[in-house]
Computed example of a mutant assay.
Amino acid sequence: MNNDMLSQDDIDNQIPDAGGDGTAAASVAISADALKVPLTVVAEQISTVLITVLGKEIKVTIKSVAPSDAKRLEPFAADAVLIKVDLLQGVNGPVYFVYSKKDVAVLADLMMMGDGSAAYEEDHKDAITELTNQIMGAVVSTFGTQFEEHVAMGSSSIEDFKPSAPVASNSQYAEMIMKIEDVKDATFGMLIPNEVAETLIKLSSKKAAAPAAGAKPEADGTAAAGGFDFGDLGGGSDAMPMQNFSQPTGHHLANDKSSQFTSTGNPQIDMLLDVTLQVAIELGRTNMSIKKILELGPGSIIELDRMAGEPVDLLVNDKVVAKGEVVVVDENFGIRIVKLISPEERLKNLR
């Protein structure tokens, strides 16, 4: 009997926050303000990726964060899609994006160089899924940079949204507003299962320690050629981000004087240091028939031989010398090196 009374106390304590089932108890410990920290990263990366892909001024803001319930999801009850993205390693579990089909059509049409006025079609599901993959690739990379925890992105899937779906309960709901230049504002949501929300909060709590850790390579003077401490970057993210790169302490742009390479130790080789070579970044390759090439047009999508999230190749004179992650430096594309062979090996590859 005493055990029954204790169990009833637990249930009573859950009533203000729960939707009627015992698993909702986890929401009691979830702070909306704490969850906004990692969600702010998501909002920033959505803005950055959309600016790059759509070529318009875009700003994404978080309107509210609260436990999910039927009332908050009511705007998506009629016509909406649910995109599931699995997170791996540092965060094990899925996150979900909920878009109205009307807004999916707007984004898909803008991706196809339209004006955002197209009606929704089933083909738009592929476009919004690909866009979400790019966004989450940028997000997981930024998590690794800011929170010092390697997070990888797994598979993604899309389906019509049903408010009765299990994910609609026992989750935190973040309502976000997307302001797009010359287009009506769009509202979309993120559903974060409580267990994943708790992990994200713990992950983001490392943010305060990140600047001190980032400053260490510069403070003790240990840096490999090019100004990077590759011992720290060896376990870099598998994601392929497109994000604002603010040149954190201990990392340098290639033309930064503080990262200049001075000598190989061999005078004869040093004479070649001012020779200019062609540098290229290879995202991936594929083979296409002449028929397929002739069918290409604005908005066509070409699938490459590289998985989403894989590092890209840095080639010097068509020889791979490093692998890295795509970033955005101010308004230009760049690459953050995550793996680099030694100067001697690089020189051999260039022969």
Rank of each mutant, 00 (worst) to 15 (best):
I290L: 15
G189V: 06
S342M: 04
T48R: 15
A280D: 12
D9H: 06
G114K: 08
V328T: 01
P211K: 07
F147D: 01
K202I: 03
G114H: 08
K59Q: 14
A223F: 09
D10F: 12
V167L: 01
V95E: 14
F143W: 08
L203E: 00
H124P: 01
S155Q: 13
K71T: 01
D220C: 05
V279M: 15
N13W: 07
N3I: 12
S258K: 15
A219H: 05
E159S: 11
A223Q: 11
K202C: 01
P67S: 06
Y99M: 06
L233F: 10
K319A: 09
G234W: 05
F147M: 04
P38F: 10
M242F: 11
Q45E: 14
N92Y: 03
G144Y: 07
Q8L: 12
L294I: 14
I30C: 01
S237A: 13
P38R: 07
A108C: 13
L88F: 11
E331I: 10
L296K: 09
A225V: 10
F230V: 10
M176G: 02
I335G: 00
A78W: 02
N2E: 15
D238K: 09
D270P: 10
S169M: 09
G334N: 00
V95I: 12
V53W: 14
V65M: 02
S68E: 05
L6G: 09
A70F: 01
T276I: 09
A78T: 08
L296Y: 08
V65Q: 02
G265I: 11
I192W: 01
V326C: 06
D185Y: 05
E344T: 04
E57P: 12
D313Q: 03
L39C: 14
G114C: 10
E331C: 08
I11M: 03
V196P: 00
K101N: 12
A18H: 01
I337K: 03
A224R: 05
L87N: 03
V327P: 07
A108Q: 07
Q45S: 13
G236S: 08
S157V: 05
D21F: 04
D238R: 06
K207C: 02
G154C: 13
G114F: 07
Q278G: 08
R306D: 03
A18D: 05
P166D: 08
I290S: 15
L296C: 10
G234T: 09
A280N: 11
T187P: 08
I46N: 11
S156N: 13
L73N: 05
E331D: 07
Q243L: 13
Q268F: 13
P241G: 01
V98Q: 06
E218H: 08
G231Q: 04
Y120R: 00
S100E: 10
N3G: 05
R351E: 07
L277K: 12
H124V: 01
G116I: 10
P163T: 00
K184F: 06
I180W: 11
G227L: 12
S289Q: 14
I335E: 04
D185H: 10
Q260H: 13
T48S: 15
K216A: 15
H150K: 09
L315W: 00
E295S: 13
I62D: 03
M240R: 07
P75E: 00
V312W: 00
D256F: 06
G297N: 13
D69P: 00
